[in-house]
Computed example of a mutant assay.
Amino acid sequence: MNQAEQKPVIGFTSGDLNGIGLEVTIKALNDSRITDLCIPVVFASNKSINFYKKLATEGNFSYQAIKDFERLSQKTVNVFSSWEEEVNIQPGQINNEGGAYAIKSLSDAVQALKDGNIDALVTAPIHKKNVQSESFPYTGHTPYLKAAFEANDVVMFMVADNIKVALVTEHIPVAEVAAHITKQGIVSKLKIMNQSLKKDFGITKPKIAVLGLNPHAGDEGLIGKEEAEIIQPAIKEAKQNDVFCFGPYSSDAFFARGQYEKFDAVLAMYHDQGLIPFKSLAIGEGVNYTAGLSGIRTSPDHGTAFDIAGKGKADESSTRAALFTAIDIFRSRLGYADARKNPMRKMSAAMLARAVDEKLTEE
């Protein structure tokens, strides 16, 4: 399924069964033009799809149920049966069933990605508390995918049309952030970002900004020494490894003065330092991308939204953006590997979507 002349097979997980995951996935895929761009596969069950399609769409959402990948349809949505038993779906409720079946879907989808049965994966939101178990001791998708793909390191990379922000630390308490900021860790993230920007986003010579940890980037050591002792040496080492990076910058002034516009990506030290400005400044819908994996995984930048689950109010825009980003990265990787032989491989999903729109308008 990875040949350039074929449409990519894109998998979708269900997310928490009581959240908005299946609802926004159905909404995003309820457009016949989607199958002009890719072959969608949702990892769930017929009954769970039927439950949410009544809530999610006014039209006729059609799909084909499959149990193996030999029967993939290129003309409609495919639903891979990750389970067949009856599940009591309770939109808006946080319970063990919602989390357990989210992991069933995720496990099947990740295995399919590792086996090459799908070319990319779009994951729907899970709830960090109700997925915890002995078999899933992870704080979220990113550490799970790192373990599943046996990656040395990965980067949580938030991407939008006008801004890309990556994180050194992810879902850890603020009180523990400083202890997790190391020279080795920063250099590793910068190398992954640099390679991803080239391979996944088609940027020939990426320019990366690095933020400081402390207010005013430590103010020359007056309010913190991490910048001088850890971050600056990391930037120096990364440069010696052909990473075009600069900093550390004081994060408040950096974003307030629009300095992020001069860079292809920004490396933040901790979650809120990066995600608050990203979600405030991003033009278009933001997408969470896991850089550093051999496989392609994207996700909408929102959570389970239990407060509106099952009410038909959930907006599918970020899920659609995650789909288009996955297709773009798939094509960019093909172009990175062999751009000279077929320049059309670099055509983005957005360009393809516009081409389909123009064709429909002409008709």
Rank of each mutant, 00 (worst) to 15 (best):
A151H: 01
V87Q: 12
D338H: 14
A309V: 12
I126T: 10
G312Q: 07
R320M: 11
K164R: 15
S82D: 07
G116T: 09
Q6C: 12
N2Q: 09
F51R: 14
A4N: 06
Q90E: 09
E23M: 14
A353K: 10
T25V: 09
V42M: 01
A238M: 04
A56S: 13
A217W: 01
I235C: 15
F201L: 14
A179R: 06
E134T: 12
Y270E: 10
I118V: 11
D338T: 14
L190W: 01
A112E: 01
Q184V: 14
N60K: 11
P248D: 05
V110M: 06
I231L: 15
Y336R: 11
T169Q: 06
K205D: 06
D328Y: 08
E85I: 02
G19R: 01
I329L: 07
F324N: 04
A179F: 05
N30Q: 08
Q232T: 13
I235L: 13
V177W: 00
A326F: 11
F330S: 00
R354A: 09
E84C: 14
I223T: 13
V168H: 00
P206G: 12
G295R: 15
V165T: 07
E362H: 07
L213N: 03
V77G: 12
C245T: 11
F61V: 12
F278W: 10
T304S: 14
A160V: 07
I103G: 02
I283M: 15
P125A: 11
G286I: 05
I26Q: 01
A160L: 13
L55W: 08
A350V: 03
A265I: 07
T319M: 09
K205A: 13
I126W: 09
K164H: 07
S32W: 03
H171R: 12
K239W: 04
S107E: 09
A309E: 05
V287E: 00
I308E: 04
F255P: 02
K341M: 10
S62L: 09
N342K: 13
F201Y: 13
K313F: 07
L222I: 15
T304F: 03
L17D: 03
G312N: 08
P91E: 08
A56D: 05
M344Y: 06
Q93V: 15
Q184F: 08
T25W: 01
F254G: 13
I26D: 03
G21Q: 11
L29W: 06
V177H: 06
A148N: 10
Y260R: 13
L222K: 15
F69W: 05
K7L: 14
K359L: 14
Q273W: 10
V177E: 02
M193R: 01
N60A: 14
Y249M: 04
D252R: 11
T182R: 07
G258K: 01
C38D: 02
K199D: 05
D200F: 02
S14A: 15
A44V: 01
T304Y: 03
D68T: 11
N194T: 03
W83D: 07
R340F: 10
V266T: 12
V266A: 12
F306Y: 11
N95F: 03
N342D: 13
A147F: 09
S251K: 04
K346Y: 02
L29S: 15
D119T: 07
P91I: 06
S82Y: 03
A102R: 04
